[in-house]
Nucleic acid binder design. Structure first.
Length: 221
DNA sequence: ACATTAAGTGATT
DNA sequence: AATCACTTAATGT
């Protein structure tokens, strides 16, 4: 690789988005072994069943993480934002397991890919790396627990609002461009249910609806 | 103008 | 809340 060229660029990215990885030698290792990847919006980064060979450090854009079960039904899990990494990849590559999840670029994405063989080596060598891995592991676990009980205990309308807010946040906008059908797929619900709930939200003045677009109007938590 | 795709609605289970 | 069977509305060709 033309690593001499991207080296300073990677160091700069790390400083900006991963200040907690402050150890200089670690930064240098990431810069020498890591590679910059770019994905266009909508591109599938990792699909179910594929082997994970790099661990991503997200720099720009957001990544949608979802789970797909055996009959091909999909369920949205969470968004990954810059400064975050995919926890599933830790375990997946450490254990050489196939990916259980699918990740898709929500918008244009830039990330640093780290070959998996360095991951556990760095765990013992660099304190800040270990912290980073454990911290993001913990964060993701919490996130998952939230998702689980939102499915178990929340009603569809709350899940919908939640979903819309996360999606808007992930894209840094109040206008979401998507169809009711896609939302339904993500939430594992029927299209009609989504349409009806959205209508309700519109009547409550919380969203404005258009073809292929939903505007979020309020924020109050 | 016509076909296609997204969204809205009521009835049924 | 899912599914069906339409209807209505927006968009593309």
């Amino acid at each position: 690789m033309a690593n001499s060229v991207v080296y300073p660029e990677i160091i700069e990215m790390l400083r900006k988005h991963y200040p907690q990885l402050a150890e200089r030698p670690l930064q240098e290792e990431i810069a020498t072994h890591g590679e910059i990847y770019r994905f266009k919006a909508g591109k599938t980064i990792m699909d179910v069943g594929s082997y994970v060979k790099i661990m991503p450090l997200l720099i720009n854009g957001s990544i949608k993480v979802s789970r797909e079960n055996d009959d091909g039904r999909e369920l949205f899990l969470y968004y990954l934002r810059p400064g975050e990494s995919c926890t599933m990849s830790f375990t997946c590559c450490l254990m050489h397991k196939k990916s259980e999840i699918r990740t898709v670029a929500e918008d244009d994405v830039t990330l640093i890919g780290i070959p998996t063989r360095y991951m556990d080596e760095w765990m013992t060598r660099y304190q800040s790396w270990k912290n980073f891995v454990l911290t993001s592991y913990d964060q993701r676990l919490m996130e998952l627990i939230n998702t689980i009980d939102s499915i178990a205990f929340q009603h569809m309308d709350d899940r919908l609002v939640d979903y819309l807010q996360k999606k808007a946040q992930a894209q840094g906008t109040h206008t979401i461009e998507t169809t009711h059908q896609e939302i339904a797929l993500d939430l594992n619900a029927s299209r009609e249910a989504v349409s009806r709930l959205l209508k309700q939200l519109e009547r409550q003045g919380r969203v404005a609806l258009g073809r292929n677009r939903i505007d979020l109007l309020v924020k109050g938590k």
